[in-house]
């Protein structure tokens, strides 16, 4: 038997063919180029509520310590931005009083990740310029802002209006519902928690008590049940004689109210469950915007080569143990 006939015979060996296949696949990895493809990115404006009720610590942090709603919202946004495909754009704003304040116009999320992360990290309730928290007004103006910037909206709030809404309800949404898509994210636990209170030097001094906040909005016409209240007098005591009582000094996420705002404005409601999980909710709610992506085909070739290599080494042994293989030696 000559060397040539030996090689020819070996060429019929299926294990050689498996190895040669693996060799071919690996060799191919040096020639393939990344495939150009289009991925779904997003362009989003995130508005973060920095009013006092966002300081409520009703989340658990990574170390098990209580974490405030604001800290959790910041972590969730950081996680969201880190997971967005390159080419997505992210703008950031703050909400307090009755209006959003744009910190920066949309930035590309991969190249600009460091500044975005730094800006998110720096968000603080001390940046608030006024104390009110008129959520619906802030939300409607945030929608206008997102429309101007041409982005979707992520509005993170706990939904606690301060002062409370009058009995006639909040302002009506005048825009076109659904023109701006996005999320209203409800931050906070469903149970009531005390709201931390800070002094004018920014140090925490305790919690708000029932008498520290407005429990009922007594501007505008009185509610319809006012006549049945004790001491009601249409001229002198249209809201009844008793001081208003309530739980406005405690805070929980006001989901029914945020859902109602979502229905009015065409935004999707999602609850903030922790420092993650916004990405999936945003993906379904946001407008997909094509961004160029690249697919590296090498892992597929390499994976197939590894399977062939394993088959070449293991199949005789598997067959010997009674595992079915596809070809006889």
């Amino acid at each position: 038997m000559t060397a040539a006939s030996l090689v020819a015979r070996n060429l019929r060996d299926w294990r050689l063919r498996l190895l040669a296949g693996a060799l071919g696949l690996v060799a191919l990895t040096f020639f393939v180029r990344p495939l150009a493809l289009t991925r779904d990115g997003v362009a989003v404006l995130a508005i973060v509520d920095i009013t006092g009720s966002m300081n409520v610590r009703d989340y658990a942090g990574t170390d098990g310590q209580p974490a405030s709603r604001l800290e959790t919202a910041k972590a969730a946004l950081r996680d969201l931005v880190a997971g967005l495909p390159c080419g997505s754009r992210f703008a950031l704003g703050l909400f307090t009083e009755r209006r959003p304040f744009l910190l920066f116009a949309p930035i590309e999320t991969c190249g600009g990740f460091a500044p975005i992360e730094g800006a998110l990290e720096a968000i603080d309730w001390r940046m608030a310029w006024e104390g009110d928290s008129r959520i619906s007004a802030g939300l409607f103006r945030s929608i206008d802002l997102a429309a101007e910037l041409g982005t979707d909206l992520v509005f993170i709030t706990d939904g606690q209006e301060a002062p409370p809404l009058p009995s006639s309800g909040g302002p009506a949404f005048e825009g076109k519902p659904g023109a701006v898509r996005g999320l209203i994210v409800g931050a906070g636990a469903p149970g009531l928690s005390p709201i931390p209170r800070y002094n004018d030097r920014g140090r925490e001094t305790g919690f708000y008590g029932a008498g520290d906040v407005q429990q009922e909005n007594r501007f505008g016409p009185p509610p319809s049940d006012a006549e049945s209240r004790e001491g009601y007098n249409p001229r002198n005591a249209p809201f009844g004689a008793a001081a208003a009582t309530g739980t406005e000094h405690l805070s929980s996420v006001r989901e029914p109210y945020l859902r109602k705002l979502g229905r009015e404005t065409g935004l999707t409601y999602a609850h903030l469950d922790g420092p993650g999980g916004l990405a999936a909710a945003l993906k379904t709610a946001a407008t997909p915007r094509p961004v160029p992506g690249r697919l590296d085909p090498r892992p597929f070739l390499g994976g197939a080569a590894l399977v062939l290599l394993l088959a070449a080494f293991l199949s005789p042994h598997l067959r010997a143990r009674g595992f079915p293989t596809w070809k006889k030696a």
């Binding site: 703050l94 304040f101 910190l103 920066f104 460091a114 500044p115 730094g118 800006a119 990290e121 720096a122 001390r126 940046m127 608030a128 310029w129 006024e130």
Partner: peptide, 8 residues
């Protein structure tokens, strides 16, 4: 009224 860090 308050300072705001916009970009580090």
């Amino acid at each position: 009224t308050a300072p705001m860090l916009v970009v580090p």
